[in-house]
Design a protein around this nucleic acid. Structure first.
Lengths: 353, 353
DNA sequence: CCCGATCGTGGAATCGATCCCATTGAGTCC
DNA sequence: GGACTCAATGGGATCGATTCCACGATCGGG
């Protein structure tokens, strides 16, 4: 026991003072070498660097954050991680931000506005340098305050009315149109829709794209072929059961979300419906296993990776030219970036018989 | 422009000093009221609280972290978020930790040891209060240093040799045994295995469970019915193709991972193999859509939720009685917690014909 | 050779909270 | 009434880095 006298000391990190002392310079000079790269002689620079190396110095980001008011932390507020788009976005965001020296504070809201509020408060307490929000839409007032307080905010995939800050949005409407146009082009006329709740941007936009594409072909959607509900597996299952039991069942189906599509596929297997011979299928949202399904599933890819990357890019742009102390307005009020969707045609769509 | 003179001021947060001044007390007293709940008169307490309320005071966690050496940040180092177990764990961990006042710094390694090293360094720089690691297994030396430096570490799902800190492990071997016993009990003898890489704990343990259960029934695994490879969709697909093309195809299949199972199911649909009539199927790892498949899939649930919860519980236990400045050893050297797996029998398994 | 500019460096204030220690005043006991 | 206890509070050091300011040395131009 007594043979390890410095055990209490070992667990204390090396500070800048110690490096400075070891290098025989002042704290200020050591700091200049290690962070600010301003005017230091080559000789002292070497001395400090080797001392830091030797002692295994690592800067304390908490201390430096207090002084500089930059935490190098970004808050990510997101609905869940189960949905494929969301976990892809989270991964991409984290990786890109890390490359730029930022770490991610993850907050999963589960669509609960109260939790979202608490997270926003907490993230501010931690002095995050920026925020990416896939919001519930219930706290726009609070988001506006945050943004007004000079903390860059990027709204991702959801742009509630009265939102402030930049928005990076998926091309949901356009994507749904692409899907329906593809089906129409193959000769389908009875096209069914399984989609998300009207309260959510993607639910609304995908439906309006669906309707618009049909309208452009002079078709009005049959109510019996439209199912709008939650983004859940059972909803997909039940909807397929109902739609396929209609007097005139559809020859094609647009399934507007990854989770619902699980249900859709399970129900089709259960009913023994052959895809694409009896029913063509297009799904909105790519998932890693769609290309390997039998048949490989035709999808509308909402470009989750791009959404993540553009969100980071826009956020960093804001952080870098954010007004510091003067109350000057940022370069523009709030940019809307829309990411293109693309149709990936695979084997689940074919001309109707 | 000149009409908003305080815009520069508005964006500065309220500090404890200001609260103290507004309440007519000293900074120390204000601090006592708002954090330490030690002896303060009811009157001053009210004064400070109302001043804080009125000014919208929120403590600066960076400053308080510097002084107290507690950041209220926990680092989570994890392989990816695409795998169902991993994103469930991440969600659960984040939620539980938040309930206890901690936020999560998310780091996705993508199984890259170099990235893992960098993340560990960065997390230490941010002075995280603890770490949960689903590790690559290549940085045990570094993890040991971290742990020795007094930062609680919980290893999750992976326990490489020479690891230090606590381990929360899935009951992989036991789970695989349950699956095989279930199949044996129904009368199956030709049972195929599609599993993960031997380098990963789960790949190794699930295979040994598979072998052990067969051995207990006096059966030796047929090499033609065993596929060990990466946890990917294509590997599942290819394996099924190969296994079902064998001279004596299996009557039952154990599919050892969520991603591979996608491939497995796609391939079975493609081959027109009816489940469970022609082939019984058990999958390791639960996924939200398995109960809704046709037929509903029998699974070994590795209890990702429990893994997350137990990891948090153990981590907080360490944080709360961690040796502070004295070099005293923690209560025990490193605990191994094993989470039970359970078999959820659904419709994808039946007696062979 | 002198003066101003520039460079390299150290001293000390600062960020915002926590907490040790000293001080004050009220209450208690003999 | 004096000594003592104890609760309530304020002053000020402190955490570890950054950064403003000042000082001395070097250098070049006139």
């Amino acid at each position: 026991m007594g043979s390890i006298p410095r055990s209490g000391v070992d667990r204390v990190a090396v500070t800048l003072d110690e490096v400075a002392e070891a290098a025989g310079v002042s704290k200020s000079t050591a700091s200049r070498v290690l962070s600010g790269s301003s005017r230091v002689s080559a000789q002292t620079r070497r001395a400090v660097q080797s001392a830091a190396e030797r002692l295994g110095y690592r800067p304390n980001r908490v201390a430096s954050g207090l002084r500089t008011r930059r935490s190098n932390l970004i808050g990510l507020v997101i609905t869940n991680l189960v949905n494929a788009s969301f976990h892809v976005i989270t991964e991409v965001l984290q990786q890109r931000l890390d490359e730029c020296g930022y770490q991610v504070l993850l907050c999963v809201t589960d669509s609960d506005p109260a939790r979202e509020r608490r997270y926003l408060d907490t993230l501010l307490d931690h002095r995050v340098d920026g925020l990416v929000i896939v919001g519930t839409g219930e706290n726009t007032d609070m988001v506006r305050q945050v943004s007004a307080a000079g903390i860059p905010v990027v709204n991702l995939m959801r742009a509630p009315v009265g939102v402030s800050g930049d928005c990076v949005m998926a091309g949901d409407r356009e994507g749904a149109e692409l899907a329906v146009q593809h089906l129409l082009g193959m000769g389908h006329r009875r096209i069914a829709f399984i989609g998300g709740p009207p309260e959510v941007d993607s639910g609304r936009d995908r439906y309006s794209g669906f309707v618009a594409a049909l309208a452009a072909a002079g078709i009005e959607p049959y109510p019996a072929l439209v199912a709008r509900g939650p983004y859940t597996v059972p909803f997909g299952t039940e909807s397929v059961m109902r739609l396929m039991a209609a007097a005139h069942p559809p020859t094609a189906l647009y399934s507007a979300n990854h989770e619902a599509t699980f249900g859709t596929l399970g129900a089709l297997v259960q009913l023994g419906v052959r895809v694409p011979e009896q029913l063509s299928l297009v799904c909105h949202e790519e998932a890693p296993w769609f290309p390997y399904w039998h048949p490989p599933i035709t999808v509308v890819d909402n470009s989750a990776r791009d959404l993540g990357e553009l969100a980071v890019e826009q956020l960093l742009r804001r952080i870098d030219n954010r007004p510091d102390d003067a109350g000057a307005a940022p370069d523009d009020a709030g940019r809307l970036i829309r990411v293109g969707s693309r149709l990936v045609v695979r084997g689940s769509t074919a001309a109707p018989r």
